[in-house]
Design a protein around this nucleic acid. Structure first.
Lengths: 194, 194
DNA sequence: CATTAAATGTTATCGACTAACATTTGGCTG
DNA sequence: CAGCCAAATGTTAGTCGATAACATTTAATG
């Protein structure tokens, strides 16, 4: 009760600092580019020390690239019929989990994606971020009897399609929905492209 | 004639330095890991200055990850029937270009790939390296009438399958051929998985 | 043997990131 | 209200990858 209150209050202060960092970084990145913006600038704009920046974000790119490994994805894939080929199972699983994607779309999501789409360094960081999800999918498929290489290819391929759609969404017109683009991308992987 | 001879000799010296760097780096990477190895160590082991290291390789990871963008790939894709879907066209093009892949397999290729497969930082660098190839494929498909998003998905997906096969090859038994793995991976993308 | 251009070395600097230690903040308890 | 306490922040110093400007060495050539 007591320590719980402390924890809450302290967390509020930390959250505010984190939000200030995020605002300052997003603003600077959009005005002068990701690479041209230094952590020192971000810290100064946020009214903190560079050291404090790294206390809230492990790396500079972590401000834009978060790795929300979603257990729901692996779960949705496991729900698909086991007799399907790994690729098709993964594809249908991703489509099934697509409904939850809109939950990720906060107000700054599209701005962040647009920045990632423009910077090779950020795209690389994003690719590393999806590896956890890929690994989870692979383990799920393998545990259901798939060959490891087949499972790896299935996961890598489906996530590549989804990532391509995500990056395209970053610079797409405002009325374009992310779910629509992902669905369109995954449709190309369908065995019967009707 | 005169300057040509100078160029040759000078180049030989540069090539020997480059080879010494490569040997030293590969040895150190395998013994103590990529991240745990510093450029200073490599330079010292190669008998040069850190500065000279960066004169031969733009980055630390460039010792292992080269970006041999192969125009033959885009060309082979262009050869495929235009009425095919972008994904199938890309898939067949990659399969057709597969014969040239063995040319990339020098003595150290597999050791390098094994190191890349183990390090997230190196996998990220490799991903950035394939972006040039992906872009070339996309431009080719678009110039033949494909939608940009469809072309991007097709290129990203096929290269993801090939990359997955490549990384698997790095730790596969010695009698496993890279071409065989890539062929197997791309087969999963076939519209009729017969 | 002097010339010349490439290859290498020196020195200084930047930016991302980390470790160790000191300081401030602010709610809570007696 | 005074003082405790733990989280948050600051300070300092350093490592490592990478770059720039300038000096030096190398070795074939005429």
């Amino acid at each position: 009760m007591l320590s719980t209150n402390i924890w809450l209050v302290v967390t509020i202060r930390a959250l505010r600092t984190r939000a200030r960092i995020l605002d300052a970084a997003l603003d600077l990145f959009e005005r002068q580019g990701y690479d041209a913006t230094t952590v020192n600038e971000i810290a100064e704009a946020a009214g903190i020390t560079p050291m404090t920046f790294f206390r809230h974000f492990p790396t500079k790119d972590a401000v834009l690239v978060t790795d929300p490994y979603d257990p729901l994805i692996a779960e949705a894939i496991g729900t698909q019929p086991v007799d399907l080929a790994p690729l098709e199972r993964t594809r249908r699983g991703l489509l099934a989990a697509l409904g939850d994607i809109s939950a990720l779309e906060d107000a700054t999501a599209k701005r962040r994606v647009a920045l990632v789409a423009e910077s090779p360094a950020l795209r690389a960081a994003a690719a590393v971020g999806t590896e956890a999800t890929q690994q989870a999918i692979v383990e799920r498929l393998v545990s259901d009897g798939a060959e490891r290489l087949d499972a790896t290819v299935a996961a890598a391929v489906c996530l590549a399609a989804a990532t391509a759609a995500l990056l395209a969404w970053g610079t797409a017109p405002d009325d374009t929905t992310l779910a629509g683009l992902v669905r369109h991308a995954l449709t190309q992987l369908a065995p019967d492209p009707s």
